[in-house]
Design a protein around this nucleic acid. Sequence first.
DNA 1: TCGCCATTTCGCCAAACATCGAAATGACTC
DNA 2: GAGTCATTTCGATGTTTGGCGAAATGGCGA
Lengths: 128, 128
Amino acid sequence: MFGEMANQFDQFVGITKALSDPTRVRMLLALRRRELCVCQITALFGLATSTVSKHLSVLQQAGLVQSRKTERWVYYRLSDKSAPVTVREALDWVSKSLARTDVAAADQKRLGQILKMEPSEICRRVCR
Amino acid sequence: MFGEMANQFDQFVGITKALSDPTRVRMLLALRRRELCVCQITALFGLATSTVSKHLSVLQQAGLVQSRKTERWVYYRLSDKSAPVTVREALDWVSKSLARTDVAAADQKRLGQILKMEPSEICRRVCR
DNA sequence: TCGCCATTTCGCCAAACATCGAAATGACTC
DNA sequence: GAGTCATTTCGATGTTTGGCGAAATGGCGA
């Protein structure tokens, strides 16, 4: 609400700060495939749920991802075409630069395994 | 100089880390105008010389700028077309997103004043 | 060789950050 | 309305980072 007052420069640095952590960049690459709920992302990266939630919050604050809540789960997805130009260019730059890297491929492979399970099953395994 | 064996992913995060500090982004915007020596950049931002040197080192490590030494001074400039694609796209993204912002305009205005002086004169004023 | 001087490196401090586990939140179910 | 469960927020901790001043570096001219 107050955060909306940031100027173009601060918005830009918010984006670059969000992109400056390797885990957050990997999250964006994973979300290229489809929207994911927090427990799926937690399973993918093997971090504490609170850590994953915090990372996603940073990405959302920067405008790079959006979220929707359904039943018990919160799903995050990459921001769509309604996002500011700078955000879209950032996402394009990430994809273009890293989509074909080993890191992205390995994450996608593990994500494939995770997507075979129902979110509820993942959470039974992962969340506490 | 660029002899690091980091993979594409690490190179990318190196770039985003370099871009995650507002001072470093402003330095890149200033260098769009022309190459600048350390003492000119120091005068422009009013920071300690050692701090400026460190920032420029981070930008150079990421491949975003290059340097040349002439007489007493080290000049830094934006990396040219021989730089990796990811670097060029990063620089383009910075320019496209921020070249017309108030911050960039104010820095350019002050830079105009600084460029009226000889580097040696600036150093006599600024260094120490 | 010696000293000068712009720059870099080093040592230190304070602020910011990634991470975790625990507690709080909030939505759905019974 | 109470309990359950995914997520968020909080609090603590170790690490990273930006900043400075002082010391080291390295090129140049005397």
